[in-house]
């Protein structure tokens, strides 16, 4: 169980998130929602230790989370990656094995097999020797998900994994979510989709600097909460 308790963080000279508290349970997928600039990515980065919080704490079974951060597999937003980087799909996925391999060592045969299996799970095994820039957006996202799988983590933090992906990728990702949940993994996903895909999540967090609502779909995806988060001009696309 991962608990975020009263976390406040700043971005340069302004508050990014204030007094945010919630709990992530194993075997559940949580959808982190909110308008652009609401602090969703910052919140995820605070949890990952990439941005220091001004106050508050992150706890793993009531202990400080910092020593357990290696349990998290993180998929950053597509926009922060240079897709022209000279690297093949296989080597991107093997990055997920860097920590387990340790310093001054080459990837073991077992790590290579895990990386290959992860690629296979996302339907990308045939692309192992392609340069990452030669793939479509959806295929690139699947490669990053494979890297997260290769890490054999307990928690998966995905920052907008569905941005600009095709239907096949979306289906593969939601099938994987179900498998990971069944295996007792914890998922935190930033997503903007208000359509049918909401059914894949167990918990929703609606954020706009402060946590406006947390709970199941009917508690969070309601007009009053969405208006508070997005403003009066927001209409439910799924309605």
């Amino acid at each position: 169980m991962l608990e975020v308790r009263n976390v406040t963080a700043a971005y340069r000279d302004r508050w990014a998130i204030q007094n945010v508290s919630f709990v992530l349970q194993p075997g559940q997928a949580t959808n982190l929602l909110g308008p652009n600039g609401a602090g969703k990515s910052t919140l995820m980065k605070v949890m990952l230790g990439l941005v220091p919080p001004v106050s508050g704490s992150i706890l793993w079974h009531n202990q400080p989370f910092a020593p357990h951060r290696h349990r998290v597999a993180y998929v950053p937003q597509r926009t922060v990656i240079d897709w022209d980087y000279p690297i093949t799909v296989q080597n991107v996925v093997r990055m997920g094995r860097t920590r387990q391999t340790g310093w001054l060592r080459s990837f073991s045969a077992a790590s290579n097999a895990i990386a290959h299996h992860a690629l296979d799970r996302v339907g990308m095994a045939d692309y192992a020797h392609r340069q990452i820039g030669e793939l479509s957006g959806g295929q690139q996202q699947r490669v990053f998900i494979a890297r997260a799988l290769a890490q054999e983590a307990d928690l998966f933090f995905l920052d907008e994994p569905f941005a600009g992906v095709d239907q096949t990728t979306e289906t593969i990702l939601f099938d994987l979510f179900a498998e990971l949940k069944a295996a007792g993994k914890t998922l935190l996903v930033i997503s903007h989709d208000f359509g049918d895909t909401l059914a894949h999540y167990d918990q929703f967090l609606l954020l706009n600097q402060t946590l406006i609502a947390a709970g199941n779909q009917s508690e969070v995806i309601c007009p009053a909460c969405l208006e508070q988060a997005y403003g009066k001009r927001f209409y439910l696309a799924a309605a």
Binding site: G49, Y74, P76, V80, I81, M95, T98
Partner: peptide
């Protein structure tokens, strides 16, 4: 390689 390709991912993984 990890750091130069994906600094955020590398930092998150504890490098």
């Amino acid at each position: 390689l990890f750091y130069s390709f994906d600094p955020l991912g590398a930092q998150a993984s504890g490098l």
